[in-house]
């Protein structure tokens, strides 16, 4: 009897030890990355989360988490909701514009342009990234203002002037300009890997180039599209320079609001942390969706 008991107890234990040791090796290998991840990502986020639970905390005060008032404030004040919505609108709109403009460009560079020109074109496209984002926004002011470059041109060709500076369209233009290179780079990387034999197969089955594009090229580059959109969306969500300089009087965004909480008049770090957590959550959600989506498409390979 007793021996039976002991064996039945031993078995799971050895199994457990076996399972543990099978975990040990990867754990050891992952440890350095884990330490980095912990130091640079997990701990800061936890700190922000802790701060977000202290209503109205300011620099120099003791962190003493006490409740979710900061979060309630975001939900209860319609004004903050409006800021959130505006940020989302700017980020989503920019993502869409970048996708629509970036896809043909990436497609051209990856599939049409001769190989020896590709790198040059890509560098040309990425060149704007080397200038400061602030200077780029100021350049757009010069272009878009009522008597600026754009309207001078429109007038010269007999078209009516457009007054878009200090309105949302200008923000979309500025942000799209800044983020388009990222989209193009990522889509290029994805399209360049496209198996052209699949396009031949599609043509062979009766697809004209247009049909082949929609039925093969686009689905095949979906992971790239998703990654590009995500990057542009996240970066767009964090941009406050373009909205502020180009968007006119009503251009408060999440990023600027957070900035103001940390460095502005009141220094409400608690509320700022709560706002940050909302963004972190939104971005994490987007990444989780991408991973899930990416998994499915990689299973297709």
């Amino acid at each position: 009897m007793s021996s039976q008991v002991s064996t039945s107890a031993d078995k799971p234990r050895t199994a457990l030890v076996g399972r543990l040791s099978s975990w040990l090796e990867p754990l050891a290998l992952l440890a350095p990355a884990g330490v980095w991840l912990g130091l640079l990502l997990v701990i800061p986020v936890l700190l922000i989360f802790q701060l977000s639970l202290v209503p109205g905390i300011r620099p120099g005060q003791v962190v003493n988490p006490s409740g979710i008032e900061n979060y309630l404030q975001i939900v209860q004040e319609p004004i903050y909701l409006r800021v959130v919505l505006r940020s989302l609108m700017f980020a989503l709109g920019t993502t869409l514009i970048c996708l629509v403009l970036g896809f043909p460009v990436a497609y051209l560079i990856a599939l049409v342009v001769p190989k020896q020109w590709r790198n040059l074109l890509l560098v040309g496209f990425v060149l704007p990234l080397w200038t400061s984002s602030l200077l780029r926004s100021y350049a757009w002011i010069t272009i878009l203002r009522p008597t600026g470059v754009l309207n001078t041109f429109l007038k010269a060709v007999g078209l009516p002037a457009i007054d878009i500076l200090n309105r949302p369209p200008a923000v979309f233009i500025g942000m799209s300009y800044s983020l388009l290179p990222y989209m193009v780079l990522i889509l290029y990387a994805s399209l360049e890997k496209l198996d052209r034999r699949l396009l031949e197969a599609a043509a062979d089955l009766g697809a004209n180039p247009f049909q082949a594009f929609w039925r093969v090229t686009v689905p095949q580059s979906l992971p790239g599209i998703a990654a590009g959109c995500l990057l542009v969306f996240i970066t767009g969500l964090g941009d406050f320079i373009d909205p502020e300089l180009l968007g006119g009087a009503s251009s408060m965004t999440m990023a600027r609001l957070i900035y103001n909480q940390f460095l502005g008049v009141t220094r409400n770090w608690g509320f700022g942390s709560a706002l940050s957590m909302v963004i972190i959550l939104a971005v994490s959600l987007a990444i989780a969706l991408l991973l899930k989506y990416g998994d499915r498409s990689s299973a297709n390979l």
Binding site: I79, R82, V83, A249, S250, S251, L257, V265
Partner: peptide, 10 residues
């Protein structure tokens, strides 16, 4: 701060 946020997000 709050008035400012209202003013610039309206």
């Amino acid at each position: 701060e709050k008035y400012w946020t209202q003013l610039t997000s309206g």
